[in-house]
C-alpha cells in the first residue's frame, strides 16, 4: 500500500537531486533545471499533504507556486540571454563583474 510518506520520500529524493545540480553544475541553464526540480519537489509535498489531510489549501498553494515558478523561469532565462550576450558564455564562473 502506498502511503503519504512514500510521496514525501520521492519528494526528498528529487530535492536532493536539485540541490546536487545547484552545487555541482556550472552551466546557468542547468542551474535553472535544478531550480525547477526543487520547486517541483516542493509542489509534490504540498499536494501530498493536501491529499493526506483532505485539505483544499495545499492544492491552492501548489497552483500559486506553479504560476510563480513559471514567472521565475521567464525572468531567469531572460537574464541568461543577457549574460550570454555580454560574456559569450553561460558558465556561471565566467560572470565575473558582480564578484566581490
Amino acid at each position: 500500500m502506498v502511503e503519504i510518506i512514500d510521496y514525501v520520500m520521492i519528494s526528498t529524493i528529487l530535492f536532493g537531486i536539485g540541490i546536487y545540480g545547484l552545487v555541482a553544475k556550472r552551466s546557468a541553464i542547468r542551474m535553472i533545471f535544478a531550480i525547477e526540480i526543487v520547486a517541483n519537489a516542493a509542489n509534490l509535498n504540498l499536494v501530498a499533504f493536501s491529499r493526506g489531510l483532505s485539505n483544499v489549501q495545499g492544492q491552492t498553494f501548489a497552483l500559486f507556486s506553479i504560476a510563480i515558478a513559471a514567472a521565475e523561469v521567464a525572468v531567469g532565462l531572460g537574464i541568461i540571454i543577457i549574460a550570454y550576450r555580454l560574456y559569450k558564455e553561460i558558465d556561471v564562473e565566467e560572470f565575473k563583474s558582480l564578484k566581490g
Binding site: 502506498v2 502511503e3 499533504f49 491529499r51 489531510l53
Partner: peptide, 8 residues
C-alpha cells in the same frame, strides 16, 4: 494521514 481520506 492516509489516502483513505476523501479527495479534495
Amino acid at each position: 494521514m492516509n489516502l483513505q481520506m476523501p479527495p479534495v
